[in-house]
Simulated scan of single mutants.
Amino acid sequence: MTDRLSPRDAVREPRLPAGDGVREDGGPETSRVTVVVATRDRGDRLAETIPEHRAHVILVDNASTDGSPEAIREAFPAVEVVRLAENRGAAARNEGVRRAATPYVAFADDDSYWTEGSLARAAALFDAHPRLGLLTARVLVGPSGRPDPISAAQAAAPLGAPPGAPGPSVLGFLSCAVVVRRSAFLDVGGFEPRLFVYGEEALLAMDLAAAGWWLCYDPSLVVRHFPLPAGRNRAARQRIEARNRLLTALLRRPPGVIAGTLASSFRESPPALWDVARSLPWALRHRHPLPAEVEAALTHLAAQP
Results as ranks from 00 to 15, higher is better:
F173L: 05
L16F: 05
P229A: 06
V79G: 03
P130D: 03
P219E: 04
R4W: 14
L46I: 02
G117P: 00
L262M: 13
G26K: 00
A236H: 08
Y198T: 11
P254S: 08
P289F: 02
A85R: 15
H288T: 13
N94W: 00
E241W: 13
L5Q: 13
V60Q: 00
E48K: 10
E13L: 15
A292H: 15
E95L: 06
L301N: 01
L273H: 09
D275R: 07
A108E: 12
S64N: 01
V223M: 03
P289Y: 02
R239H: 03
A259R: 06
A38Y: 13
W282V: 13
G260S: 10
P149V: 02
P147W: 06
L134V: 08
V188H: 00
E80R: 14
V178P: 13
S6D: 04
S31Y: 13
L262G: 12
I72K: 01
E29D: 02
L174W: 11
P193C: 07
V60K: 00
R253M: 04
P219S: 07
R54F: 04
L251Q: 07
P77T: 11
Y104V: 09
G43W: 00
D187G: 12
N62F: 03
G256K: 14
P166L: 04
S112Q: 06
V170F: 04
D3E: 14
H225D: 09
R4E: 14
S151K: 00
S118V: 01
